[in-house]
Amino acid sequence: MWERSLVLSAPGKVILHGEHAVVHGKVALAVALDLRTFLHLRPCAEGKVCVRLPGVGVVRSWDTSSLQALRRGVAADFDESKSPSVEQLHTLKEFAGIAAGASAPESLATLAFLYMCLAISAKYGDVPNVDILVWSELPTGAGLGSSAAYAVCLAAALLMACRAISCPLKEGESTARWTEEELTLINSWAFQGERVIHGNPSGVDNAVGTWGGALRYQSGKITPLKRVPMLRILLTNTKVPRSTKVLVAGVKEKILKFPAIMNPVLDSIDAISQECQSVLEAMPANPSPEYYPVLEELFDINQHHLNVIGVGHPSLDRLCQVTASHGLHSKLTGAGGGGCGITLLRPDTSPLAMEAAKRDLCACGFECWETNIGAPGVTLHSSSSLNAEVLHALSES
């Protein structure tokens, strides 16, 4: 039986540069967003597994005996290197009373929990008696990696509960992280959770949630950058819904129609990503303020390119205009067509300018967070390292 009460967290993600161009073989930079998903892992009554996800209205519990029996029926192909099969997911949906075509967040979150609980315990031992409560600072459906942060937290918690990885938090420490080998295992199982939720994800979101910092992604290859600075940003959600699938198709159509015009734009976006990577890697050794005007120019140029390839939106134009009026530089992040934008904040950005920008953005009906990018990946926390809001959210019974 699992004996300890622990809290762990994983960050969200934003795309810094390379949106859409990455679909066509170019470089993208993904960075960890310091809005985090937190998981409270506690012992549960003998013979019980409980999961509570207040953000999506899930409160479920099962007898471990029924889960063990279910596991025997579907466990033949459970492995962190294999995709969940259609048959496995169908059986789990029937068991949990989830409709065959259900795509609501609460259904997918429950399904991912069941799959990961059974798959991990099948490889490493019995189904653990655990009570898991998850609370997130990340909005769902905003392209900020909320499902991946959830999957990373689940993977780490269940692997610990099954004794497949260590519990590195020592007495007196505020935070702790796992070894590189253990992080690789966490990431591989988190990717399976993402497959349950998304079907065919790239693996970038869960990798950012696991390792944090910044990652370079190109043609399926994910490379964590060795050292990057934490940068302050303003993250703004325009709340304008969009379809990533439709936007991606629109870009492809434009490339096919005007290849001589559009391919150089994609090459330029690729060059922006690579220039930004060089700047980020140089900053920790030489934290000069001279880097910030370069990063701001890259934001401005890339935002224009993203409008050229057809993924802008009047709401994003308004976001950029509002922040520019306060001397700040912004770009869309993710699919575009609405969704979210990021605004770079220099170390010397005045609190008055930032508050004025936030006020004006909120007056447009947008939602804003002041946060950081380049944040740590999945982390164990002592209670003393958590703020009052997180502690309150995780103390709910």
Rank of each mutant, 00 (worst) to 15 (best):
P11Q: 07
G12E: 13
V14I: 15
L16G: 11
V22R: 12
V22A: 11
G25E: 06
K26L: 03
A28D: 02
A32N: 00
T37Y: 04
L41Q: 05
P43W: 06
G47T: 07
K48D: 04
S61D: 11
S61E: 13
S66R: 13
R71W: 08
V74C: 12
F78W: 10
H90I: 07
H90M: 12
K93R: 15
A99E: 15
A100W: 15
A102D: 14
A104P: 06
M116G: 00
C117F: 04
Y124T: 00
V130E: 12
V130F: 04
V134E: 03
W135H: 14
W135E: 13
G141I: 11
G141P: 02
G141D: 08
A142C: 09
G145S: 01
G145C: 02
S146R: 01
Y150H: 00
A157D: 08
A164I: 03
A176W: 02
E181A: 08
N187R: 00
W189T: 00
E194Q: 01
D205F: 01
D205G: 06
N206Q: 08
G209E: 07
W211F: 14
L215T: 12
V228I: 15
I233W: 09
N237D: 15
K239V: 11
V240L: 05
R242Q: 14
A249E: 15
E253F: 10
I255C: 12
I255M: 12
L256R: 14
M262P: 07
N263D: 02
N263T: 05
P264G: 05
I269V: 15
A271D: 12
Q274R: 15
E281K: 04
A282H: 12
S288P: 08
E296W: 05
E297N: 08
I301H: 05
N307S: 14
V308Q: 13
Q321L: 14
S330N: 12
K331M: 05
G338E: 10
L352R: 10
K358C: 08
L361H: 09
F366H: 02
F366S: 02
T371P: 00
G377I: 03
L386E: 03
L386W: 07
N387K: 09
E389W: 01
V390Y: 05
